[in-house]
Amino acid sequence: MRHYFSDAPKTALQASYWVFVIYLLLPLTLMTAMSFKDANFIAFPIGDWTLGWYAKVVQDKQFLEASGYSIFIALMTTIFATIMGVWIALLISAEGIWGRAAIFALACLPAVVPGLINAISMRIFIRVLDIPTGTGAIILGHTVHAVPFVVIMVLTRLRSMPNNLIDAARDLGADSFIAFIRITIPFLAPALVGGMIFCVLTSIDDFVRTFFLGGYQPTLPMLIFAKVQGGMSPEINAMATLVLIVTAAVGLYAEHFTRRSRT
């Protein structure tokens, strides 16, 4: 097959890849660069450099409160979504379950429904049930969105689990609960860690659902949005850069962890 690809298309392919990478990273690089600029407006040249914006951000009570609130929501979302996701995955993988495909499709639906539609329908839903907007509603909305990712990751891992591991544990004296705790959960660990980190990241990142379901207390994306509306400042760049670094680090770690555990 090799001779179908002469060197010219190969070079073009590589070049277009690098163009794509630059396209992807340039805005982020500009944003990061501006966060070090010692001036009140965003423009080139940068001139003097400073860490002052970062110092300001980490002392900003609003920023710290919004970060804490976002992390709290993300953790609650992760706990609920993981429990529900594992439960649904186990249900789907169980032998002789009726309507397996339908359950799977329903469980995955929230992942493909547009965020806005999802947010509006959730808003109507909580209004009907008389649930107040705010923390509980946000967690509910984020959980619905996060469950499919847990289901898919856990299900993939479950399918690679040899059938007779559980049989072996039962044979050696474990009842079905102990077999689940001591064999199934450790086997699922890489998928669980990956899925949980995914839950945290989607929750922290979520703007639309939070916007429709939230109360007066802003999460981090809502705070940044509010600040941007009041005019761009390098402080926002510093905030965004911090968020970028943390989420990228967590995401890469998750990727690394799941990949290493696969071998």
């Binding site: 591991l165 049989d167 039962r170 009842d175 086997f187 660990a189």
Partner: peptide, 21 residues
């Protein structure tokens, strides 16, 4: 009786060793 209540043990064809232990 379920497997955990019987005083017999089995060696499986593909061994079924617990991979995380």
């Amino acid at each position: 009786l379920p497997p955990n209540k019987r005083n017999v043990n089995i060696v499986f064809q593909d061994y079924a060793l617990f991979p995380h232990l």
